[in-house]
C-alpha cells in the first residue's frame, strides 16, 4: 500500500513536472511567434519602411515557430495548472482546437512561401495570420491579470 502511495505521489510529481515543461514550451512557441510578428507589424503600421529582407527573415522565423505548435505535445490533457492561461475548453473541444492549430500552421506556411512584396502585402499577410490568433484566443485562453 505504502509503495503504491509513493508510486502514486511520484507519478503525480512527474506529471506536474511534465506539465510545467509543456506549459513553458508552448509559451516559448507563442513568444517566438510574437517576436517574429513585431518587425512585420512595424512595417504594416508604417513605422518602418518596407524591407524585403526583414519581411522574409521574420516570416521564416514565424513559420518555424508555428510549425512547432504540436498540440499533442504542448497541450497534454490536464495541463491547466500553474502559470497558464489555457482554458479547460481546449480539451472539451479538442477536435476544434486541433483544427485551428492546423489552420494556423497552413496559413503561416502559405504566407511564408510567397513573401509579400510591399507594405500592403504585409498588411494582408498579417490580417490572414491574425485571424487565427484571435480565433483560438477567443475561446481557449483566459486573461488572469
Amino acid at each position: 500500500m505504502k509503495r503504491l502511495f509513493v508510486a502514486g505521489a511520484l507519478l503525480a510529481v512527474t506529471a506536474s513536472l511534465s506539465f510545467a515543461g509543456a506549459v513553458e514550451d508552448r509559451q516559448a512557441v507563442m513568444k517566438s511567434m510574437g517576436k517574429a510578428l513585431g518587425p512585420l507589424a512595424a512595417i504594416a503600421k508604417g513605422e518602418n519602411a518596407f524591407d524585403a529582407g526583414v519581411v522574409e527573415q521574420n516570416l521564416t522565423a514565424l513559420n518555424e515557430a508555428a510549425q512547432k505548435l504540436d498540440v499533442a505535445a504542448l497541450f497534454p490533457e490536464g495541463s491547466t495548472t500553474g502559470e497558464t492561461e489555457a482554458l479547460p475548453a481546449i480539451w472539451e473541444n479538442m477536435a476544434d482546437f486541433q483544427e485551428r492549430a492546423d489552420k494556423l500552421k497552413a496559413d503561416v506556411a502559405e504566407v511564408a512561401s510567397a513573401v509579400p512584396a510591399d507594405q500592403a502585402g504585409v498588411q494582408a499577410a498579417l490580417g490572414k495570420i491574425g485571424q487565427n490568433c484571435g480565433g483560438c484566443h477567443e475561446n481557449y485562453r483566459m486573461k488572469k491579470n
Binding site: M30, M33, G34, K35, L37, G38, A41, L126, G130, C133, G134, H137, E138, R141, M142, K143
Partner: peptide, 10 residues
C-alpha cells in the same frame, strides 16, 4: 495585435 505581439483574446 498588441504592441508586444500578444493578441486579442476572449
Amino acid at each position: 495585435f498588441t504592441p508586444d505581439f500578444d493578441t486579442v483574446g476572449g
